[in-house]
Write a protein that binds this DNA or RNA. Structure first.
Length: 286
DNA sequence: ACACCTACCTGCCGGC
DNA sequence: TGCCGGCAGGTAGGTG
């Protein structure tokens, strides 16, 4: 799944085609993704104009001319296609008309007419229609922590959020109520950069380390966005954009490899909260 | 409230 | 070659 950098990459791909476009020929191919589609979803989208393509955490938000905002979460395998070309490819590109395309539509806007598809093999993604003036109050958004690239995110914020917290810092950083948009890859990468042990209780990380961590999070996300996100399952002959940040992982997915700091450490994989954590026991000791 | 566990779903990969 | 277990970028809902 796409984490914040991948969702942002998708947002930037959709924006030129969808912002200002009118939707038509909306087709919904099954009743649900992770959750049921909204009532009369296709009918409500049909004829609406998209006013903007925004992102909050890992959600895409498209306010529409009908006073509702079309919300999409990509889950683990969700992806949009434009004229069959994939946007923010996280896996090998699938043929046009693939079996996992669950909705599609036609967008007519400044750049002409484009076919937009949404595919999601695992169906952990979901879509909603939320009144635009009440998006912030919706359960999906009400509890979210600050954007890690925004002004509200700071070492002081983490200090407060981690106060008295005995849970390890790795799992804590995945908690979207504390900071919104990080996922398994970028948490591992940020902790490696900050030389913080993922096993350390969140409440016991020093203020100085939280300062380093805050910068590491901003840096890794910024660099990943600039690289177009990460594409995990590599492929040779891509059409359309592919992320390149996966080539710059220092920890994620590198179990058994030498740590890039050349301190003799070897990247280890452990399981925390049911998910893999990659880290260097030699340099991530703080 | 917090910490922890499980479920949701399909595809791919490595081992036997 | 085929089957089987393990693993995958996320979130929600339940439990003590």
């Amino acid at each position: 799944m796409p984490e914040l950098p991948e969702v942002e990459t998708v947002r930037r791909g959709l924006e030129p085609v969808l912002a200002g476009a009118r939707l038509s020929h909306v087709r919904q191919n099954r009743p649900d993704l992770r959750f049921p589609f909204p009532e009369r979803f296709a009918d409500r989208l049909d004829g609406a104009a998209v006013e903007a393509v925004n992102r909050r955490a890992k959600y895409l938000l498209m306010p529409l001319s009908i006073g509702e905002t079309w919300v999409t979460h990509l889950g683990m395998t969700g992806r949009f296609t434009l004229d069959g070309r994939q946007l923010g490819e996280f896996e090998e590109p699938a043929p046009i008309g693939e079996k996992h395309e669950h909705m599609s539509l036609c967008a007519t806007g400044p750049t002409g007419r484009t076919r937009v598809g949404f595919a999601d093999a695992r169906r952990f993604g979901f879509m909603g229609l939320v009144p635009t003036d009440r998006v912030e109050a919706h359960p999906w958004f009400a509890g979210l922590g600050p954007e890690p690239l925004g002004n509200a995110f700071s070492a002081a914020h983490l200090k407060t959020a981690f106060e008295g917290r005995r849970q390890n810092i790795k799992v804590s950083l995945l908690d979207q109520r504390i900071v919104a948009g990080l996922g398994n890859i970028y948490v591992c990468e940020a902790l490696w950069r900050a030389k913080i042990s993922p096993l350390k209780p969140a409440g016991k990380v020093s203020a100085a380390r939280l300062e380093t961590l805050t910068a590491a999070i901003r840096d890794v996300l910024t660099e990943a966005i600039a690289a177009g996100g990460s594409t995990l399952k590599d492929f040779a002959n891509a059409e359309g954009g592919q992320g390149y940040f996966q080539h710059r992982f220092d920890a994620y997915g590198r179990e058994g490899e030498a740590c890039g700091r050349e301190d003799g450490g070897v990247i280890r994989r452990v399981v925390q909260g049911g998910r893999s954590t990659f880290y260097c026991p030699a340099c991530q000791r703080a």
